[in-house]
């Protein structure tokens, strides 16, 4: 048939792969927002500030022999790679999750307040597919934000400090290459630590038509939970708070790796993703879109 040459795909028979277009476009769109770039800029600046502070401190002959300060900060002068671990430890409690809270909180509510949600739905994006694309692109942002911190820290660390073999917490020494791999794995773990919060933010985002309200609520919840996680009186519930095991990524710097807390963290994140992901789906697929 000559017709087949003209029309490679019969109309009315869409290729299932076309469904991925929305996710691709969503991800690109997230990173084209000025706000996203500003958040990534702030995250990139943190390792620079930490690196300079450490450099100035050692220049003055300081270094009180391992007291306070963020994790690994005392090793930074000897090995710039430790700036990656320090920077992740510094940004994980608030900077990184706040950035994720902003992106996740705005994901659906921002479209609703702009009125673009109704046009995506009549396109028709499909409510489940749109929610999945929103969540997947938020996960891409989690990974990108973590990598921005890690890469910025590695660059600053390499510029300001020597690089070399890595002495682990357990005392054994591994090659720089092994250390770099562990840094990459830690970045992946940190990004995975943010998935629970991303699901929570997505759920909040389906509750309101105001992007600002959803972002503020998500970030507010994060801060509240982080504070609750500090009260010893609440130790019975703390194992269920999503940030409780966040700092466990340091266990990757032991030989052999201590897996228990790492797995607890991942399990807890999976639980949050399941619970709040389902809640977001239940809410978004049934709600009236009038904005």
């Amino acid at each position: 048939m000559s017709q087949a040459d003209v029309l490679p795909i019969r109309p009315g028979r869409p290729n299932p792969l076309w469904r991925l277009s929305l996710f691709r476009n969503e991800t690109v769109t997230v990173f084209r927002r000025w706000r996203t770039l500003a958040l990534l800029g702030v995250l990139a600046a943190v390792p620079v500030l930490v690196g300079i502070a450490v450099k100035l401190e050692t220049g003055r002959g300081g270094g009180d022999g391992g007291g306070g300060g963020p994790a690994f900060i005392n090793q930074v002068t000897n090995n710039g790679l430790f700036l990656v671990f320090t920077s992740l430890a510094v940004t994980l409690p608030f900077f990184l999750p706040m950035a994720v809270g902003v992106v996740a909180g705005d994901s659906v509510a921002g479209e609703a307040s702009a009125g673009t949600l109704r046009y995506l739905l009549v396109a028709p994006a499909g409510r489940t597919r749109l929610l999945l694309a929103k969540y997947a692109s938020t996960l891409v942002f989690c990974l990108a934000a973590t990598l921005v911190v890690a890469v910025s820290a590695l660059t600053v660390g390499a510029l300001l400090f020597p690089l070399g073999d890595v002495t682990l917490i357990s005392g054994t020494t591994v090659s720089f290459g092994d250390g770099l791999l562990r840094a990459l794995a830690i970045a992946g773990l940190v990004a995975a630590s943010l998935t629970g919060l991303a699901a929570l933010g997505l759920f909040v985002s389906t509750l309101t038509d105001s992007g600002i309200a959803a972002m503020a609520t998500t970030v507010g919840l994060l801060i509240t939970v982080q504070i609750l996680d500090q009260f010893p009186q609440l130790h019975a519930v703390q194992p269920y708070l999503f940030p409780h095991y966040w700092q466990s990524f340091a266990d990757l710097l032991r030989d052999p790796v201590w897996g228990e807390q790492l797995l607890r963290n991942l399990g807890l994140q999976a639980l949050y993703v399941a619970v709040f992901g389902s809640a977001a789906w239940a809410r978004f697929t049934t709600r009236d879109v009038t904005a």
Partner: peptide
């Protein structure tokens, strides 16, 4: 328009 067209699962990306 590209964004709204991407949202339509029946739209061929090659002719977008």
């Amino acid at each position: 328009l590209v964004r709204l067209d991407s949202a339509d699962p029946a739209a061929d990306p090659r002719t977008r």
